[in-house]
């Protein structure tokens, strides 16, 4: 069985008036089914307001579905007695690096999760060391987080989650507030974790270049899943992606323009190397005719 299994999940945000009565409701997630296998790297794309962040918050029971069910590692998120187990199996990294670091020293922050779980002291230290080494921040262990760059802060936040030994990490737009260097740092770290430690990754983002290495890409729009498949499959539908106002890698866009001009290129080109290869093949074929 998959590590995350969601069935017919719907979520309504309620708007209360001054007396606490429900004034209006708006559906942020609408009848979503989601299956994630252990060890997978899954990316969820969509513009702001598409429901992707709301869905993410269901995975570690910060939000509970209005309708439907979410199972994480076999545990129903509605089951209150399992709450802390669920939060331990599905860690979460948020968008703003400043607002999720609790400790005033890097290592203290990474130890925060294990402390909450009641892990014995010696083991906390062992976990802190392992996690900081896994994200490449060990040498910064006695620094103040305020002196770090955005990308470094996010890596500390990731280490804080890794130290809880989760089976799955949900990252909710972890790169939205970073510069290009910071973005690369974070994505590289997440990919390493997935590859080396086999942690399941659920990456929520609106940057295309971050999802081309995922095992599976899910596109959300207006609370629903509108596309899913491998990156290649999803990026074959340039027209549709443009309709959802999503970015497409420039190489894919150039290939799309060339196809429109009648140049026969394969679908789903993701990088410059692939496009150059395809163009070379096209030129050779034409010369042979």
């Amino acid at each position: 069985m998959g590590i995350i299994k969601a069935r017919h999940v719907a979520f309504d945000y309620l708007r209360m008036d001054e007396e606490g009565q429900v004034e209006s409701r708006s559906r942020a997630v609408d009848d979503v089914d989601l299956d994630v296998e252990a060890g997978d790297f899954v990316a969820i794309l969509g513009h702001n307001g598409s429901g992707k962040s709301t869905l993410a918050k269901h995975i570690n029971a910060i939000l509970l579905p209005t309708e439907g069910t979410v199972f994480v590692d076999g545990k129903d998120t509605q089951d209150e007695s399992k709450l802390w187990e669920i939060r331990q199996s599905a860690g979460m990294v948020f968008q703003n690096p400043d607002n999720q670091i609790i400790g005033t020293i890097v290592d203290e922050d990474v130890g925060f999760g294990p402390e909450n779980m009641g892990v014995p002291q010696d083991e906390i230290w062992q976990r802190v060391e392992e996690s900081l080494k896994a994200v490449g921040m060990w040498e910064y262990r006695s620094h103040s987080p305020n002196k770090l760059s955005g990308g470094q802060k996010q890596r500390v936040a990731i280490a804080g989650v890794v130290a809880m030994r989760p089976k799955c990490i949900v990252l909710d737009e972890p790169t939205a507030m970073l510069d290009p260097n910071g973005r690369q740092e974070v994505i590289r770290t997440v990919r390493e974790l997935n590859r080396r430690e086999h942690v399941t990754v659920l990456l929520i983002t609106h940057y295309m270049e971050e999802v081309i290495h995922a095992d599976k890409v899910i596109v959300m729009d207006q609370g629903k899943i509108v596309m899913q498949g491998t990156p290649r499959e999803v990026f074959s539908h340039v027209g549709e992606l443009k309709r959802f106002r999503l970015d497409v890698p420039q190489a894919t866009l150039v290939a799309y323009e060339l196809q429109k001009a009648g140049i026969a290129l394969p679908d789903g080109i993701l990088s410059n190397e692939e496009l150059i290869g395809a163009l070379e093949a096209y030129r050779k074929k034409r010369q042979n005719k």
Partner: peptide, 21 residues
């Protein structure tokens, strides 16, 4: 944001908490 991040990392008061230092 911070409250949410603390909850997500399993914070539920001082009970049953161990100390790193």
């Amino acid at each position: 944001d911070l409250a949410m991040a603390m909850e997500a990392r399993g914070y539920h008061g001082g009970e049953g908490r161990t100390k790193m230092k």
